[in-house]
Design a protein around this nucleic acid. Structure first.
Lengths: 209, 209
DNA sequence: AACAAGTTAGTGAGCAATCACTCATTACTG
DNA sequence: CAGTAATGAGTGATTGCTCACTAACTTGTT
């Protein structure tokens, strides 16, 4: 439980952003916090500037408009999660090994920047375009891994999109429950349970215990 | 696949609202459609009135303000889903029988009023109060059924809130995937697969096939 | 060093547009 | 005509965004 999974991945997956003290970073941190709490339309540019401790006009030096600011932040976590799944698919050959890596990394990314992750699961639906590019979304990447495993004969063939959604739900719904206060503490604490649940949905855990 | 599950439940679970042609019903239908599409803050009272074919002022004859309208609609589907789970817990004695009923009914309620269901899963987080009353939320009701099954010795003991979230995720994440366009057709088509997945997460499907 | 010129970072008053909501008035109905 | 249903122009507040401006810092020339 001590060793982190994230360092095994590339820099993009580990999550990098603007220099911590810069004005741009202050705006981003203020915005992601306020957006996750009140929704994008529930936050004014004035309140973002106030929370960041900068003037309102400065936002428009770094971002074209409020929507672009919201989109950039969403894209950061969206791509981070997607690339993590793709990387895991490349570094491991079998579905169970991939799932072991992915469940841990998913939880660690969520715990690492919970505000940004919370923003992602609460408000991703504001950006339909991000999910309409299947290969660059967590769902699409997961569906691809599952489809490959089906073609290798690791699991029975069925609709990979439905199965990918069921599998993602085993991890994402507890995350949403944590957002809504029904579950407490870091997600990583439950990573082993999530892994077991995911394997069960895939019919891969008959040989355990 | 022909027989519906919904009729087995009480009137409240079957879903009843204002008379179809009344002005109040027209406002509700217009609001739930626009809210689910653009979010509550992304919809103006003017646009609701226009879509409903009534004047803007009429909204305030039937609802105290825009927030109350949004809350009433959310409460309708929220209570409908919650009561369905509670009812299933009363009418069936074992967890597998309860799950058989619930997965079907969940899908049928979603298909029956997809716009309202879509509004629920996309924007429930706007009303944290609804989830903070655990016994009156789908998550809370499901957690109770699971906890009871643990005490009857049907499944191993563990954190019932975490397990309830994982189980709900198996059904809700495919619903979200359908919202985002990754899955098509009615949810009921996949009810049997969802049931199998839920049983697997609970460790209850060793005796199948 | 001294100064001028140019570039970048940052400000905040102000603007047109839109917002949720009110209310005096009208239309309808039994 | 009493009572309810319905209207929509009007209101003050707030919105996202602009832009003329200042402050601070780099660079080039002497």
């Amino acid at each position: 439980m001590n060793d982190k999974i994230i360092p095994h991945f590339s820099d993009e997956v580990r999550g990098v952003s603007a220099a911590n003290g810069s004005a741009k970073a202050k705006i981003e941190r203020a915005a992601v916090w306020l957006f996750s709490e009140h929704g994008i339309d529930g936050v004014s540019t004035k309140s973002i500037a106030a929370q960041a401790g900068v003037s309102e006009g400065l936002i428009y030096r770094y971002f074209k408009n409020k929507e672009a600011l919201a989109r950039d932040l969403m894209l950061a976590i969206h791509n981070r999660l997607t690339l993590m799944i793709i990387d895991a698919g490349k570094s491991e050959a079998t579905l169970p090994a991939q799932i072991h890596l992915i469940t841990r990394a998913y939880c660690e990314i969520a715990d690492d920047d919970w505000t940004l992750f919370r923003y992602h699961i609460l408000h991703i639906s504001r950006f339909p375009g991000l999910s309409e590019t299947p290969s660059l979304s967590p769902h699409g990447a997961a569906a691809r891994l599952i489809k490959n495993a089906m073609e290798r004969g690791e699991i029975p063939k069925m609709n990979p999109d439905v199965l990918a959604a069921m599998v993602l739900g085993v991890v994402l719904q507890p995350a949403q429950a944590k957002v809504l206060g029904a579950i407490k503490g870091p997600l990583s604490k439950h990573a082993a349970v999530f892994e077991k649940g995911v394997l069960a949905v895939l019919g891969l855990n008959a040989d355990k215990e």
